[in-house]
């Protein structure tokens, strides 16, 4: 009896250690990524000069006199994301209201399933569709030599961020206490007025979280943007070929060396800091929402 107890205790201790180690994995990985990005990203920034790097408008990494200004990438990422949010948020929000309030259970399953599927489609497929359908359409519509522009990238991104916005918003809208809606309806407001003027504001923090998640997805997307944005280091313009922060890394990673390669790590560091700031913001939005309740 005593012996079995001892084996049991031993197993307990071993499992304790295993679970604890696994639990630490996420901290370890995050620390590793952060440290590596700083170590490999800072030298090039130091060499180029932080102002020159962040606000330089010319990226010519392979020129005789190379110039490493990433403002075009920062602004392209920013405009592309903002555009995607501008298109994606209204569509996503309206779809969420439909899913959460208007649709019957069966149609909700169909539309909800469609949103889930959209989330599961690989970004290369979005890129492929963008290349074949959107890029020629943009060229045709606006009479351009090439349709591979910021506009095409924005449109692709606006579809890609839909699922993030919709799933977070639907969860938030479903959680609105029915008493709010009943009170509003009893006071004579119509259903639509109730959904948009009572339910949506009450679900505000959840919806905001969905938007922030969508922004994160848009800023971080590389391959789909690479395939439709033309991939030229221009300052952004709606009808210009552009590079995002992500595609700037991806397009030169394969063959770069020396300072050029280090500069790519610096771009990754900038991107990482953006995402971290966004995460911090997201946390605050969610916590603020909870506080409000």
């Amino acid at each position: 009896m005593k012996k079995t107890n001892r084996t049991r205790d031993f197993v307990e201790v071993v499992m304790n250690v295993i679970f604890f180690t696994a639990g630490m994995a996420a901290i370890l990985f995050t620390a590793l990524i952060t440290v590596y990005l700083f170590i490999s990203g800072l030298p090039a920034i130091g060499e180029i000069g932080i102002l020159e790097f962040l606000f330089g408008t010319r990226w010519a990494s392979t020129a005789d006199e190379p110039s490493y200004g990433i403002l075009p990438f920062i602004l392209s990422s920013f405009y592309g994301t903002a555009g995607a949010v501008l298109i994606g948020v209204p569509v996503g929000l309206l779809t969420s209201v439909y899913l959460s309030k208007v649709a019957g259970p069966r149609t909700a399953r169909v539309v909800g399933g469609a949103v889930e599927l959209l989330a599961g489609i690989p970004s290369v497929i979005y890129g492929l569709i963008g290349m074949i359908v959107l890029v020629p359409a943009v060229a045709e519509l606006f009479d351009l030599a090439s349709g591979a522009t910021l506009l095409a990238a924005t449109l692709v991104l606006s579809v890609m961020i839909l699922p993030s916005i919709v799933s977070a918003s639907v969860t938030a809208l479903n959680a609105v206490p029915p008493e709010y809606e009943q009170a509003s309806l009893a006071l004579g407001a119509t259903q639509m007025e109730t959904y948009f003027k009572v339910s949506a504001p009450a679900a505000g923090s959840g919806i905001a979280a969905g938007i922030v998640l969508g922004v994160g997805r848009a800023i971080g997307e590389a391959m789909a943007v690479m395939m439709v944005a033309g991939n030229v280091a221009n300052m952004p313009g709606l009808f210009r070929s552009v590079r995002f922060l992500t595609t700037a890394i991806a397009s030169e990673m394969g063959y770069s060396s020396g300072l050029q390669r280090q500069a790519l790590f610096s771009i990754a560091l900038v991107l990482f800091l953006f995402i971290m700031a966004l995460n911090g913001f997201l946390n605050r939005v969610l916590k603020g929402g909870r506080h409000h309740d």
Binding site: T30, A31, I33, Y36, S40, G216, A222, F272
Partner: peptide, 25 residues
């Protein structure tokens, strides 16, 4: 809460950064 924070962080990191750090490590 520290572990949960890092999990959230990992979930938000773009895949291109994973690729880059993967190459490095």
């Amino acid at each position: 809460s520290a572990i949960e924070y890092t999990i959230e962080t990992l979930a938000g990191i773009p895949s291109i950064i994973y690729g880059l750090v993967g190459v490095l490590v």
